[in-house]
Amino acid sequence: MSLPTRDFLDRTADHWAYIVRREQPAPNLAVFLHGYTGDYLGTWGRLPHMLYEEADAHPPLADWDYVFLGYRTGAVECCLDLARRLATELAKAHAGAAPYRGAYARFALLGHSLGTLGIRQLLCASVLHTPPTLLEQLHSITLFGTPVNGSPLARFGQWVFPVSDALRPASPQLRMLKAWTDSSYQPRRWPAPRVLLGLEDQVVGHKFADLVNWAGDEPARLESLGHSAMVKPTGWDCTVVDYLVQALSPLPVPAAR
């Protein structure tokens, strides 16, 4: 058995794990953020160990390092908390500050469920952009099971954490975030978020996508997947890997005049 080509750094108490090329860090970093009551690695099923073991055999995944971010759901109160968590890591990764092993030039953001609202919040809260060129450094944005208009579950008793408010359909926090996004997108622009919804998703559903448009989003894509299953690969030939490869593929070169 040959030595792995990547190192795996895991900080259980910090809800943080990093998969980095062993010889030389990749120039790009893919950042994963989980959803409500998820966890930094478990949410993504087999994906972390698949990337650790085989990313370098699957272009374009070889050109990226990976960080899985997490948080304790009870510790966040609103999407700004998530955005700040994300911004802090991006600032460190951009500067190559510890524990990152390199200074990253390009970022891909991938979120699941509530995590996607944290990403949306980061995009429009320019005060959190460190470096100020953050939006220009974003390669792609992929939102799995994003609550386009919250989740019907949020009104039930088992959703007990303060941040549940962000997930209530048409909640003030959600309305504010959407208006903020709409107004921020016009002057600033960011890569069009790729939105994946699940036909079997009983948590956030998919029908609101027909009614609610978020500024800049690509038209939502609909796959026959459930809320949790859509981010858990069953192997290399599966939907979540397809979306990951799309998210990390080189951007098309603009045609010469």
Binding site: P4, T12, T37, D39, L41, G42, P48, Y52, E53, Q158
Partner: peptide, 26 residues
């Protein structure tokens, strides 16, 4: 069994789930 390097990542994922379970009141 022989040790595969990727198992440490599997175990880390299990740990992250396990930590989540400990804080899940239900």
């Amino acid at each position: 069994p022989p040790l595969a390097p990727g198992n440490q990542v599997r175990f880390a994922s299990f740990l992250s789930l396990y930590g989540q379970w400990q804080q899940d009141s239900a």
